[in-house]
């Protein structure tokens, strides 16, 4: 316990140091990307002027008029803009993630049912795993336009592929002895899937889940970068056109914060599901999502 507390303190300390370095850089390098917009805006600017400028992305409503309709930039408007765009992004993310996980898992389990079908998909799955998914976004836009459906489907597709291959792999690696043990006790095929395969594959599947989370974030950001009407990713790209580094930075921080929260939530949930495991197995890999 002591070690993790110390670890957390160092992590926190490093974050503070990084924030201070940013501040230092903003003082040492007072360049401007466009007149009036510092290349590296200090924190005193970020939390005031920059945050206030996010009110531009509020469409109006709830008694707070939008800036485009002549309303003033207010903190309420800025907060509402952040909230509504965060909501749009998360909705795309979680719809796609849920759909991708469900389809990938079911398809993976179905394929694993027989050893023949597992061998048939092994090679295509290996190839698809190295497929540059992000390059497919323009196709999704051709097919579905810059719609909610298109973005959610893109997320679902990227996640589904990872989850499918992860599931097939994980089922293949379930120890024979546990399957045999269940068989000698009279377990049916379905019972073996439910009580042996699913729990036994979960530790290995966890790295797929974490990879899927990372992929889902990347996919939703990528989709929003390329022509969405709303969403945090869209704000970043829009701000980049005009050289508003401050807005980009602030919104990117929001995104990173949300991504970190989803990871933390998953860690917490998975700790309960893997209570049975020896501790050294219980820390998965979460790396590799672009």
């Amino acid at each position: 316990m002591k070690r993790t507390t110390a670890h957390r303190l160092t992590s926190f300390g490093v974050l503070v140091v990084l924030a201070a370095l940013w501040q230092l850089a903003s003082i040492l390098m007072p360049y401007e990307s466009v007149p009036g917009e510092p290349m590296i805006p200090g924190w005193q600017i970020l939390v005031t002027r920059t945050f206030l400028s996010l009110a531009d992305y509020w469409q109006g409503g709830l008694g707070v008029p939008s800036v485009a309709q002549g309303g003033p930039r207010t903190y309420a408007g800025a907060a509402l803009a952040v909230l509504s765009n965060s909501w749009d992004t998360s909705l795309r993310l979680f719809t796609g993630l849920t759909l991708g996980v469900a389809v990938g898992l079911v398809a993976g389990l179905a394929v694993s049912w027989s050893k023949w079908s597992r061998r048939i998909v092994a090679l295509p799955a290996q190839i698809i795993r190295t497929f540059p998914m992000l390059a497919l976004i323009p196709m999704f836009q051709l097919w579905f336009g810059a719609t909610f459906l298109g973005m959610a489907l893109f997320v679902a597709f990227a996640v589904g592929v990872i989850f499918f291959t992860g599931t097939v792999n994980a089922v293949g690696n379930v120890s024979d002895i546990h399957v045999d043990y269940a068989r000698t006790q009279g377990a049916s095929r379905i019972q073996i899937y439910r009580s042996v395969i699913l729990p036994a594959m979960f530790p290995e599947l966890r790295s797929s889940i974490l990879l899927s989370l990372g992929t889902a974030w990347t996919a939703v950001i990528a989709a929003e970068f390329l022509g969405a009407q709303t969403g945090l990713g869209q704000i970043i790209v829009f701000a980049q056109y005009f050289g508003y580094v401050g807005r980009m930075f602030l919104v990117a921080l929001f995104l990173l914060f949300y991504a970190a929260i989803t990871y933390a939530l998953f860690e917490r949930a998975s700790r309960r599901l893997t209570e049975w495991m020896p501790r050294e197995l219980a820390t998965p890999d979460r790396y590799g999502a672009p």
């Binding site: 546990h178 045999d180 043990y181 269940a182 000698t184 006790q185 009279g186 729990p199 049975w276 495991m277």
Partner: peptide, 21 residues
């Protein structure tokens, strides 16, 4: 015809399911 609980088997390696109490 296939395995059955009427012929119980104790394995050499640990077969106890680690994910069940």
């Amino acid at each position: 015809a296939g395995p059955s609980p009427e012929r119980g088997l104790v394995f050499q390696r640990d077969s106890v399911f680690p994910w069940m109490r």
